[in-house]
Nucleic acid binder design. Structure first.
Lengths: 396, 396
DNA sequence: TTACTTTGTCCTGAGACAGGAGAAAGTCGA
DNA sequence: TCGACTTTCTCCTGTCTCAGGACAAAGTAA
């Protein structure tokens, strides 16, 4: 299948494409209500978009009391690839132009095997999705990686948990393999974009999105745009000090948040609790599987195991301490908690909330919702699709 | 004198006014190099600005190898009032359109006396400056207050150290008294804008500006714009927890940064050190003055008093701990340290730097300058003038 | 004096754009 | 079934924006 190569010719067209992406198919008249353009100019720009094939006319809508309108929608054949590379697993999904997920695969993976092995797997998964019939090819791809990225070039920099990835030209390499435009970002930023597009953060301009997976990171959205910092490491909160002179951390410092919580720390603490007899429930699970993961703690907690609940509460309290500082500093309109560890659910959320509401300034917490992400594993891939669609729907 | 009431008619004119403000007088040709407009369009807009009186033609510049150019400059009679209200003193200054300070007064003041008394004093100071001949009237005024502000309305909200100010319509009241447009903001944000306009932060897009005065606050600049947060309390870092279960703080919590450092805490600790005999130097000063302030600690330190130096180092370390977390989170391109306590100078700066460089992520600190503000007390009033000039130089 | 550079003005044609007129297509009540 | 009214969409025209060429003005350098 011939892929879309067209790009909007001007800002008006870009605006229209984004309106159609975020609001779904719409008539000329209703688009006119959302954009500051005269009917005539609007008609001209839509005609041009129709010519390029970026949008299509799609039948008549129901009457709203007068002549029925022609529906305009984004090219139905447009396909985006969203890739969310985690520390221990990878998500690959295909979306249409409205960022609706048409196919989604998740596979275990070890990011430490390096970019070549990982992208072989990713391309294989993409091929499987193509074979399943949801796409004949891709018009663009967004990639999330679990570490800081030099965003303009799409290159990971100094990723602590990703040896072998430093400086690897992800964007360029994948763009060649896939034959379409590619954008690369931090996985946490993509989760924030996903929740902003289709999740709990719709219509919020300034918010934080805390992702607790193997490590802990935070997506920062300012004025509706992801803020990435000067070197692309903004939001790297896993190594903020939670306890002066506390536990040693893999990063070389002491007392980092990640030394106390996150998938890795939680698994280690759970194994310790299983071994020294504090929790029979966890010990049984360790016996069975040979090692423990965050999901085991979640299961033990929902089975009522007191030690597991304590581990979650303590981790939530530590995380809440750090978030409380960030809330005072950043004064967000919303805090979203997401990532693999959200399986810990409301025990975790309650601990975080308690700590933040107790410790942050009343003015900053007065109207501050702290909520779990609503998209789960779809957040990352949706955000990835959104990243590349923002790129495709910009004037060339 | 008749004040300027004209405002730029469109974005081009606004852009030109800001170029002239930030770059000084300039020829049409050189302005054309900095703005994306054709010579003809540029000439039309400049002619219109000349008609409104917002800019004036000001003689011929030296030849650059051809015909000499006419200098264009901002209206030389334009006068802005910059007001920086602190906890214990107030700065009032007059600037021209290029934000150069033409007159500057500083007086002690107690913000707790409430807005009516304070503004009486401010208006009196403004009248003194007018009487000194630097201004015949004001085209606009920027006001900084030491607490959070609902920015669009120009109203302080829930200011902890400013009882009686909550909800006082500062913008409206002063606009009536002065008969000119007024904008109100947090004093820390104005300091950041000042350092950005004329100080160490020129040409830096994303930076933090930590102001250590009576309390401790932080101005956040994202993409060249001050970020104020959802309710205007962004940057309120004085009550971030520096020590779990630490000293009680006036805010009701425990272990806040302001319980350990800032003008108020430093004075209290110094008095304690003087009383229990740890420092003869400080004891002598306490004897003499009846109370101690941060300046006494600074003087004792530069006289070589070990206890005073320790107090500064410890405070700097605490502050550095908090800033380290913010640097990991925000990944700024620059950190500016300012406020009254900068008299403590390089002892303080060294302690902060040590802590931040030790504790933050290498990627975030790799190229991160941490420097003292360069404008001193002029930062706040310059920022205030800049705030109102940004407003005046926006399309009406 | 001549050749060349820089600055600034004038003019024209291309395109952007708003809004009126009106055709097309529908609803609804009598 | 008919007429009044609404909504959608197209076409047209006049106004405004704007870029860039031509050219005049003013200077430098040899």
């Amino acid at each position: 299948m011939r892929r879309m190569t067209a790009r909007p010719a001007n800002a008006h067209q870009a605006r229209l494409l984004r309106l159609l992406r975020d609001g779904g198919p719409n008539s000329r008249a209703q688009l006119g209500d959302q954009i500051d353009l005269s009917r005539s100019k609007l008609a001209v720009e839509i005609d041009r978009l129709l010519e390029t094939g970026l949008v299509v006319a799609d039948g008549l809508a129901a009457s709203r009391g007068g002549r029925r309108s022609h529906n305009i929608r984004l090219a139905p054949g447009l396909r985006l690839l969203g890739v969310d590379i985690g520390a221990t697993s990878v998500d690959v999904a295909v979306t249409n132009a409205e960022l609706e997920i048409l196919g989604h695969l998740n596979q275990p993976m070890d990011v430490r095997e390096g970019p070549v092995a990982v992208f072989e797997q990713v391309l294989d998964m993409a091929a499987k999705l193509r074979a399943s019939g949801v796409a004949e090819g891709f018009d663009g791809a967004g990639i999330g990686v679990p570490g800081p990225v030099r965003f303009p070039e799409g290159v990971p920099v100094a990723p602590p948990i990703m040896p072998g990835w430093d400086g690897f030209p992800v964007r360029e390499a994948l763009s060649q393999e896939l034959g379409c435009p590619v954008m690369v970002d931090n996985d946490v930023n993509l989760m924030a974009m996903g929740e902003q597009h289709a999740g709990v953060a719709r219509s919020v301009k300034d918010f934080l999105c805390v992702k607790i997976g193997t490590g802990i990171g935070c997506g920062i959205v300012v004025g509706g745009e992801v803020y990435r910092g000067t070197t692309g490491s903004a939001g790297d909160i896993g190594h903020i000090q939670a306890e002066p002179d506390g536990r040693p951390c893999a990063c070389g410092n002491h007392g980092c948040l990640e030394a106390y919580f996150g998938g890795a720390a939680l698994a280690r603490d759970a194994e310790a609790a299983a071994r020294d007899g504090r929790s029979a429930e966890l010990a049984a699970r360790l016996e069975e599987a040979g090692s423990l993961a965050a999901t085991d703690v979640a299961a033990a907690a929902s089975a009522g195991d007191a030690t597991a609940l304590d581990l979650i509460r303590e981790g939530g309290t530590r995380t809440g301490q750090v978030i409380a500082g960030l809330v005072s500093f950043f004064n967000p309109g919303l805090v979203v908690i997401g990532g693999g560890v959200t399986g810990l659910g409301h025990t975790l959320l309650a601990a975080i909330r308690t700590q933040v509401y107790r410790q942050s300034l009343p003015l900053a917490t007065g109207n501050l919702p702290i909520v779990l992400g609503e998209l789960g594993p779809a957040a990352g891939v949706t955000g990835a699709a959104r990243l590349i669609s923002d790129h495709l729907f910009s004037p060339a």
